Computed example of a mutant assay.
Amino acid sequence: MRQLILDLLPETPPSFDNFVAGGNAEALTGLATWLAPSSREPLFYLWGEAGAGKTHLLRACQASYHDAQSDPDLAAMVSDAAASDFHAVDHVETLSDSGQIVLFHLINRLCGSGGRLLVAANLPPLQLTLREDLRTRLGSGLLYRLQALSDADKLAALGEQAQARGLVLPREALHYLFSRAPRDMRSLAALLAAIDRYSLEQQRPITLPLLREVLQTSLDL
C-alpha cells in the first residue's frame, strides 16, 4: 500500500521549507549553523529511527548524495569524490568493508582540504558495527539525534498541508485518514495530493464517503 501511495506523490525536491520539524528544532538549528560559511567543523552526524527525516535533510543540503543502502561499497563516490568538497552519506550502518575504507579515506581528505561531510545512520557512531577507526572518526564531529514525529505532530502537519492546498478537512476526516494510511509524512502528503486531485476531478467536497472512494480506488484497499 505504501508504494501505491508514493506513486501518487509529485516529485517535490526535499528542502528545509517542506521538512516537518516536530521536536527537532535543536538539530535543525545545529545543522543550519554547521552549513554556514563561517563553520569550520568538517563532519556532521545525524542519527535516529527510520522515518525521522534523515534522508530528507541530507538531500535538502545540496551535497553530493550517496546512499550506502543501495551502494554499500560507495563505488559511485570513488568516481566523483574529488569533484566535490561537500558529501552526504546516508545509511552509514549498511556500509560494506570496502565502503568503510572509502568513507574513512574521504573523511581524512575532507578534514585536510576544508571540505564537509554530512552522514546519517540509525544509531550513534559508537553503537555501529563498523571498523573502530571509522567509528572514532564519525564520533569526532557534531552529533545530533532526530526524533520521529509524534502522532499529534503528524496530524498538525497534515492539517497545515491541507490548509495550504485550500482543502477543508473536518477533524474527523483527518483522523479517518490517519488511522488507515502509513504514518510517515511522505505517504500522508501523497494521500493528501490524491484526495485533492480526486475532489477536483469529481467536483465534490471532501467528505468521509469521498475519502473512502479515494482509499478504495486509488490505493486498492
Rank of each mutant, 00 (worst) to 15 (best):
T94N: 06
S113Y: 00
L43S: 07
Q100A: 15
F86S: 00
D133V: 05
A120C: 02
K154T: 10
Y45P: 11
A121P: 09
L215W: 14
S187R: 02
P170V: 08
L192G: 08
L138F: 06
L167H: 02
G139D: 06
H175W: 10
L130A: 01
P14H: 03
L28T: 06
G114A: 08
D71I: 07
S39N: 05
L142M: 10
A189I: 14
Q100N: 03
A194N: 04
D151P: 04
G30E: 10
D153V: 04
L174M: 11
G159T: 13
Q69M: 15
D133L: 00
I107P: 06
R59M: 15
F86G: 00
I107S: 00
L200N: 02
V119S: 01
V78W: 00
Q127K: 07
C61H: 02
A88I: 06
V102M: 05
P124G: 01
A63S: 14
L134K: 01
L210T: 07
K54P: 13
L177A: 06
R135I: 11
L169N: 02
F19K: 00
D71S: 04
R59N: 10
T207P: 10
L221H: 09
S98Q: 13
G115T: 05
Y65R: 04
L188F: 10
V102R: 03
R204F: 13
S98W: 05
L146C: 07
